[in-house]
């Protein structure tokens, strides 16, 4: 098992290097010149050449990539002498626009993204799975049809639309919530929760719809399994039959997609954060894209990719714990 874990971690690292290479290639082969971006509008050709030298942009691409990888592992220094800029470990690049290394920019934004992602996840899991289970148990009923229509609505409504409607209703009309702002959970938990409710609902509406539909399908599938019939034939109470014998197998695929979704969200909920103006990783990405701050875009991409890949690994491990057939022979 430990050997397996080490191997999986090695594979994960390899995947990240590949993603790194791909994003690196895309960003540095794009027509926009990073040096131009770093320098600003009024910029002399000499200044650009100087920045190019500092960033190492005049060196061959593979060398640049190698430097970048080395930077991640051990930190690096851009330029020399008085102009030298230190980028400590783990160096995901240096934003010359904001004059700071990318890594601390990311980590300072992370708590907001985590707040949004985790809260929304709890909400959408609870609502989505519950709605799906009830729909499956009352297949074809009015509830089923209503829930599935709502789910379809939730899936198809764009986030910015939901977000704006929510803000109009809850903040402007009813005045029950403050406009979202950053309240650290450690200082004021209640205020934190209040400020996060709208982003949570916005995101959860999108995901709950998906989860309700998947749960319903999986439940219908597992309710039709022979072992559910066996459980009934044993004389188990219907609640036990559903919970123990139908729901548990049905949750297995949900674990998979939940891991993926959560991983992706931890890497930044771009639209939601932007709409509510919350300074999370997604907002950072949006701003960086708007400002063509390539080191930041690259950093966010890698950061988000790492979450997805690690979530993938976590899902596989959880699966091994949950499913005895996968666990079987180590």
């Amino acid at each position: 098992m430990i050997l397996y874990l080490l191997r999986r971690l090695a594979v994960t690292a390899a995947i990240l290097v590949v993603i790194c290479a791909a994003s690196f290639a895309i960003f540095y082969l794009m027509p926009a010149d990073p040096a131009q971006g770093a320098c600003g509008k009024a910029c002399s050709p000499e200044r650009i050449a100087e920045i190019r030298a500092t960033l190492g942009l005049n060196r061959p691409l593979p060398v640049q990539f190698w430097d970048y990888l080395v930077g991640i592992v051990s930190g690096r220094t851009y330029g020399t002498g008085a102009q030298a800029v230190n980028c400590p470990f783990p160096c995901l690049g240096f934003s010359f626009q904001t004059d700071q290394p990318v890594w601390p920019m990311l980590t300072s934004r992370l708590p907001v993204s985590i707040s949004i992602a985790l809260g929304a996840a709890v909400l959408w899991l609870a609502v989505g799975v519950a709605a799906g289970v009830v729909s499956a148990l009352r297949r074809g009923s009015l509830w089923d049809r209503a829930a599935m229509t709502a789910a379809l609505g939730g899936v198809s409504l764009p986030i910015y639309f939901t977000a704006l409607v929510l803000q109009y209703l809850l903040v402007v009309k009813l005045n029950v919530l403050p406009y979202p702002r950053v309240v650290p959970v450690t200082q004021d938990p209640a205020g934190w929760a209040q400020s996060m409710v709208m982003p949570w609902i916005t995101l959860a509406m999108l995901y709950a719809g998906v989860y309700a539909r998947i749960t319903r399908g999986e439940m219908l599938d597992s309710l039709g399994q022979n072992y559910v019939r066996t459980a009934r034939a044993k004389g188990l109470p219907e609640v036990t039959v559903v919970r123990r014998h139908a729901l548990r197998p049905a949750l297995m695929p949900i674990v998979t997609i939940f891991g993926m979704d959560l991983g992706a969200l931890l890497g930044g909920a771009l639209i939601t954060e932007s709409v509510f103006g919350l300074p999370g990783v997604g907002k950072l990405a949006a701003d960086a894209i708007a400002g063509a701050d390539q080191p930041v875009i690259l950093g966010v991409t890698l950061f988000a990719a790492a979450f997805v890949v690690l979530a993938n690994l976590a899902v596989d491990l959880v699966y091994a714990v949950l499913d005895p057939r996968v666990r079987a022979v180590g």
Binding site: Y4, R7, D316, A320, V326, G330
Partner: peptide, 9 residues
């Protein structure tokens, strides 16, 4: 092949 590792058994 067996288990999570799909190693050749």
């Amino acid at each position: 092949r067996h288990g999570l590792t799909r190693r050749l058994a």
